[in-house]
Each structure stands twice: as structure tokens, then as C-alpha cells.
Nucleic acid binder design. Structure first.
Lengths: 207, 207
DNA sequence: TCCATCAGTGAACAGGCGTACACTGAAAGT
DNA sequence: ACTTTCAGTGTACGCCTGTTCACTGATGGA
């Protein structure tokens, strides 16, 4: 006899189901144009039950931003602990980028899409998270040989350049059809070369 | 007595009204979530009259992409003819960027928004136009001193880096509240420094 | 054991949507 | 002068939406 799950366990599971339903649906239509009823249907509940978990679709959107960045940050922090990454930061992070995005395709798709087009609240939340991520990368970059002496503003500038380029390449990976290792290889190669070009600028930078 | 406009003149005017209505409305809500009825209302016609001009909202979207890029390309080509731009390509284009975006705020907002989140057709159209623009810029870049010897693939890589950064800064200008010359100045400054950093990489680039 | 809590139900609503259809009346062709 | 064309109208339709409300019945504390 399997014991029945506790009440809050069940509630948590339904909440997850709603989040996953929204993530999945927004992959094909964009979060802003999916309806509360669609999400509920996909999650296997009745529309009114939705309100037991979120006050509105907007609140769901914010929760989705939070969950997406939590997943992403976790993966990227793990990748940073990889000694190979520290040794050859460019080649490694180009590959890590493609791999991580592929593993979390839906989260990245959501962030990339809603970054520019979500509701104001969702857009701001994503912008804030992205700024945070830029600051985090800046700390890593600051330890690189040519950068040690830079002002912190300059390091953040470079970090921003890196992150924005990553976001763009991530968008490409997301849009990439499955089972196309050649396209994947091409994206990795281009990302690597772009990052190299930016790093080359580091050596000559002043003020 | 003013002579009445010809039939096709009037039709063209209504078409413009629809395009403008859609552009304006999509500024606050995103094109994908505005309705045929809203657009018609704003354009001052009855919903069914919409079909005399476009078969669907999707076709309207494509027309909007076309018109936006036509406007943008015209302005940017004019800017290129400015001799000051050719002399000091970085400082000038950072300023031109901010100025041009401010003058065509709604067109840029539309493109930036729908680039990632529009319908598949709209997204592809924008991607194509952006690629075209990258190729155009590549021709300009190819004449720069350090770049003459590069392979055309490398030039396009650098051009892509530039354009993507421009798109990002354009997004910022679009989101910028009116009458904030300080924010404007800051964006110009950052764009300039970023471009400079990329250009520095040019000097050391090989293969 | 009893009883309060509360996640999920199901019917009902007002309102917006896209689109079909028959129409009007001025412009343009003859 | 007569006729055709066609941009714009007005009504009507079935569908989907968000939200309301009263409800059910298992969970879990007393």
C-alpha cells in the first residue's frame, strides 16, 4: 500500500505541473499569448484551481523567470568548477555554452523570448537577473592576466559584451533543429572566434 | 473646392493608417497580442474592412517588418554618406546610432521585440533583414586598415558582433524614458567604448 | 472521533475575438 | 449616361477568454 502524499507535497507537485505546462506552451506561442485556461488544461487542472497557486498569469511569469535563472545559474556555477574551464576559458566556455543550453533548452528559450517582449514586470526581472550574471562573470574575468589592472567599470563592460554574445548564441542553439551536430559545431566555432576577438582587445585596452 | 482623392490614393492612406495603428499599439503590448479588431479601431475602420488590405495579422506583421527596415536602412545609408562618419567610424556611429534610434523609436522597438518573439514568419523576416544589414556593414568594415587582409568570413563575424551590440544598445535607447540626456549620454559612451574594444581586437587578429 | 482547512470542481457570466455575409455608395471605365 | 468595381459598413455567428460563486471531499490537527 503506497501511503498517500501529504497535502503540501501534492500542492507543490501541482505547482510544478503548472510551471512546466506554462514553460512548454510558451515554447511554441510565447508566454504573453498563452491563456490561463490553456495552462490549466495542460497542467491537468480546472481553470479556477489555478488561483490556488498564482494570483495571475503575470505572477506565474515571474515565478518562471526565477525558476529558469535558478536552473541556469546552478549549471553555470558547476561548469565554472570544472578545472578545464579555468585553464582555457574561451574554448571551454564555448562548448559549455552549447551543452548547457541544449540541456535546458526550454528555460533559455523562455528567457530569450521574454527578455524583449514579456510584460514589463517579467522583462525587468530578466534584465535584473542578467545584470547579476554579468557581475558574476566580471569577477571571473577580473582574474585574467590582461584585465587585472582595469577599472571595475571596464571589466563590467567587457563582461556585458561576453554575456550578450552568449545570449545571442544561446538563441541560436534554441532555434537549432534537433540532431544537427554540424550546425551545433558551427555555432560553437563562431562563438569561440567571437570571444577570442573580444579577448584580443583586452591586451591593448587602456582607460 | 478641394478635389477628392483618387480611389487608390485613399486606399493607400488607409493602409498607412493600419500600419501606423499596429506600430503604435504594438509599442505597448507587443505585436503578437494585439487583435485585428484593436488595430481596426485605432485605424478608424470597421474590422471587416481590414481584409481589404491584409489577409491576416500575420501578413500585416510582415509588411511592418518590411516598412521598418526600409526606414532604418534609408537613415543608416544617409548616415554613412556623412564624411565625419568615415573619418572616425566609431565615435560617429555611436552618436548616429542613438540619434537614428530616437528618431525612429517605434520601428526599432518593433524590430527588437519581434526579433525574438514574433510569429515564425515575422521572426525569420527580421533575421533575414538583419543578416542583410550585417553583410552591408561588412563591406564598410572591409575597408578599414587592419581588416583589409581578413577572410570574408572573419569580416562578417566582426560585423555581426558590431550589429548585435548595436541592436542591444538600440533596445536600451528605446526603453529610455524621454528627456533624459544623461542616460542618453551614458549609452553613447558605453556603445563607443564597446566598439573600441572590439576594434582593438582587429589589430591582433589572425586566421 | 469530530471538525476545520483548503486543493480542486463545475456551472455560469459578460465580453472580446475572428470571420462570413449581404449591403451601400462613390469612383472609374465604357 | 449607364454600369462595373470595390473600399468600407453593419449584423450576426460560434468560440474562447478571465473571473464569480457555491460546492465537494480528503487531509490533518483537536
Amino acid at each position: 500500500m503506497s501511503e498517500s502524499p501529504s497535502r503540501q507535497e501534492q500542492k507543490g507537485r501541482t505547482r510544478e505541473a503548472i510551471l512546466n505546462a506554462a514553460l512548454e506552451l510558451s515554447g511554441t506561442h510565447g508566454f504573453a499569448q498563452i491563456s490561463l485556461r490553456q495552462v490549466s488544461r495542460q497542467a491537468g487542472i480546472v481553470p479556477t484551481a489555478f488561483y490556488r497557486h498564482f494570483e495571475s498569469m503575470d505572477e506565474l511569469g515571474l515565478a518562471l523567470v526565477e525558476r529558469s535563472f535558478l536552473t541556469l545559474r546552478t549549471m553555470i556555477r558547476e561548469a565554472q568548477r570544472d578545472p578545464q574551464v579555468f585553464e582555457n576559458i574561451i574554448d571551454a566556455s564555448a562548448e559549455v555554452l552549447v551543452r548547457v543550453v541544449k540541456q535546458n533548452r526550454m528555460h533559455f528559450a523562455f528567457v530569450a523570448r521574454e527578455r524583449a517582449s514579456g510584460s514589463a514586470a517579467v522583462r525587468e526581472a530578466i534584465q535584473r537577473e542578467l545584470e547579476l550574471f554579468i557581475s558574476e562573470l566580471a569577477v571571473v574575468l577580473a582574474r585574467l592576466p590582461n584585465i587585472e589592472t582595469w577599472s571595475s567599470e571596464d571589466v563590467k563592460l567587457a563582461s556585458g559584451l561576453f554575456v550578450r554574445n552568449m545570449v545571442y548564441r544561446a538563441e541560436q542553439v534554441v532555434q537549432m533543429p534537433e540532431g544537427r551536430p554540424d550546425r551545433e559545431e558551427e555555432i560553437t566555432r563562431k562563438a569561440r572566434r567571437e570571444m577570442r576577438l573580444i579577448v584580443l582587445g583586452f591586451e591593448k585596452w587602456q582607460s
